[in-house]
Design a protein around this nucleic acid. Structure first.
Lengths: 153, 153
DNA sequence: AAAGATTGAAGGTTCAATCTTA
DNA sequence: TAAGATTGAACCTTCAATCTTT
């Protein structure tokens, strides 16, 4: 059987493995390092920080739950569980509106987000941004967006 | 206060956020998509697959637990919990040796790894490799390795 | 029916404390 | 003492089933 595009073989070639392993290791390392730094400095998880800052930056304090899920790239149930935990800690409040749920940041959530931004920025710079030569950034973003949009786009 | 290298500001600039969000979204999407495809096709998680194939490819069926943790980029306790679950399912066995633990793949583990390779290769190609232009691969790998090696390297 | 959200159970990850052995 | 490994608790993620509203 022919193999014109390299898509038929039953396992990854050495070159393919090299890309895959480099990708996985880098993604895992950045996730672990940024997560550990943020949690140690602020007590928030990376997910907490993402929720709070999106509410502030995208919605001036409030978003539909579904918009929030979309902007984070999270599935509904994941966000639902996460908001349940954050609501219990007083970071956000939910109330139902037409055909959905509105999520609003609390005063405590705003304080936590504001207080955490410097540590978050420092961690992201240290573990990711500073390691990318500035002349590579634009093309990297384009590639990452292509990857994020997926095979069916 | 001066800001020579862009490292003093208390939050990410728009450009920095663009890189960080693109990175996070791409990493999350690839992880979710590959994970879902593999689990649906084989019943193994991505972690299971990584453990089994490393045992086969790097160690001809057996590795020190510590070497395995290092090659996966995992912390000790994470691997320990994972191996406990895999051992309960009969995929691997552990036995202690000089100053450590030796992990060995079982016959069932070998069968599972072999049976899963095609689905794994297909998922990785579909959700990552096919989306990277081949002329970009070498430079991407180099960048990912720089990122993985971290700020203290 | 379709979209948005929730739930519970099972599996995965982290942190700190502990244990074991060279 | 130091390195390798384990444990339990808390937290996070996934999946499938369910519920609610339009």
């Amino acid at each position: 059987m022919a193999n014109y595009a390299g898509h038929m073989s039953k396992r990854l070639t050495g070159r393919e493995q090299e890309v895959w392993h480099a990708w996985k290791r880098a993604a895992e390392m950045v996730r672990m390092r940024v997560g550990a730094d943020i949690t140690a400095a602020t007590g928030l998880s990376d997910g907490d920080f993402g929720v709070l800052t999106r509410l502030v930056d995208l919605g001036e304090g409030t978003l539909r739950q579904n918009e929030l899920a979309e902007s984070m790239g999270w599935h509904r149930s994941r966000l639902s569980h996460h908001l349940t935990r954050m609501e219990a800690r007083g970071m956000v409040k939910r109330h139902s509106v037409d055909a959905g749920v509105q999520v609003r940041i609390t005063a405590a959530g705003e304080r936590a987000a504001a207080a955490s931004r410097p540590a978050h920025a420092a961690a992201v710079r240290r573990h990711l941004l500073d390691l990318i030569p500035s002349e590579d950034r634009a093309s990297l973003v384009q590639l990452l967006e292509t990857i994020a949009s997926g095979p069916d786009s």
